[in-house]
């Protein structure tokens, strides 16, 4: 089975601006990949190329085996833009119905109700978009992206307007999608979020991938910290496998050992290291 999203050597220039300078990235079947990076790194550009809104300058992008932007590619994906607007006069239900028709979904009312429940908007079914808070609109946007049960979901900063409860709803939703085998590419700068749900993380900086791997791979060991009667001591070169020997040595020297901890860097540390402290 082809990858849900396969990107290689992707380059995008907007006039004199290099938005992407050769990106390789893959989102495999039922994988949830987090795309991280400071503002202007090229995250939105990458997602827009994947859904056919923007044409790449060079390189290849395929969705479920079809060239990005082709009809079959668009039929296989759902997309929520970073900046989006739905007509204010439409109700949640009407919006989903519009997208069902455009996506050729036969889910009918059942699908619409299920999607609204999934994003916690079942009460707002008949409410007009203009009467919704930004956070509600964002959740409606996620429901809209899920119309027609796409195999690949492209979410560009889907939680930027959500409060902690809304974020939790989205996190639960992503976990549910993972169970259903949907592949997701999630743009975000909320590291904790990505760390909690993503199978893999890709960090983008200046239009190129500077770091990629599972959260565990990226969280490199930073030594071992051992607490004895003389206080805490760090062994920066040591790893998990060295702990028994370190403790044995200390005990042999007559020290009392109160605790030992294998140190790993958090995703935040990895991120800050990767982007060199750069912010927008």
């Amino acid at each position: 089975m082809p990858a849900a999203l396969a990107v290689s050597g992707l380059v995008k220039r907007y006039g004199a601006v290099d938005a992407l300078v050769g990106v390789d990235l893959e989102v495999r079947e039922s994988e949830l990949v987090g795309l991280l990076g400071p503002n202007g790194a090229g995250k939105s550009t990458l997602v827009k190329i994947a859904c056919g809104l923007v044409r790449p300058t060079s390189g290849r992008a395929e969705v479920c085996g079809a060239r990005a932007g082709a009809r079959e590619a668009r039929a296989a994906m759902g997309y929520l833009a970073e900046l989006f607007r739905f007509p204010g006069w439409m109700t949640a239900d009407e919006l989903l119905e519009l997208h069902q028709r455009l996506a050729g979904s036969r889910g009918g009312e059942r699908e619409r109700i299920e999607l609204l429940e999934l994003v916690g908007l079942e009460e707002a079914r008949k409410r007009a978009v203009e009467a919704m808070s930004k956070g509600m609109q964002q959740r409606l946007g996620i429901a809209q992206a899920l119309v027609g049960s796409p195999r690949l979901l492209l979410l560009d900063e889907p939680t930027s307007a959500l409060d902690p409860v809304g974020r939790r709803t989205v996190r639960k939703l992503l976990e549910e999608l993972q169970r259903r085998g949907v592949s997701v590419l999630l743009n975000s700068h909320l590291l904790s979020e990505i760390e909690l749900v993503c199978d893999r993380v890709v960090i983008l900086l200046g239009g190129r991938v500077v770091s990629a791997g599972t959260p565990a791979e990226l969280s490199r060991p930073r030594g071992v910290e051992i607490e004895t009667s003389q206080g805490k001591r760090t062994y920066p070169q040591a790893g998990r496998e060295d702990v028994p020997k370190l403790i044995a040595d200390l005990v042999r020297d007559g020290q009392d050992v109160y605790g030992a901890r294998v140190l790993t860097s958090t995703l935040e540390e990895v991120y800050v290291e990767a982007v060199g402290g750069e912010t927008s």
Partner: peptide, 14 residues
Amino acid sequence: ERNLLQPLVVRPIG
């Protein structure tokens, strides 16, 4: 420019 078009254009209709 009003961000209304993109959600429609990415649908299969073309």
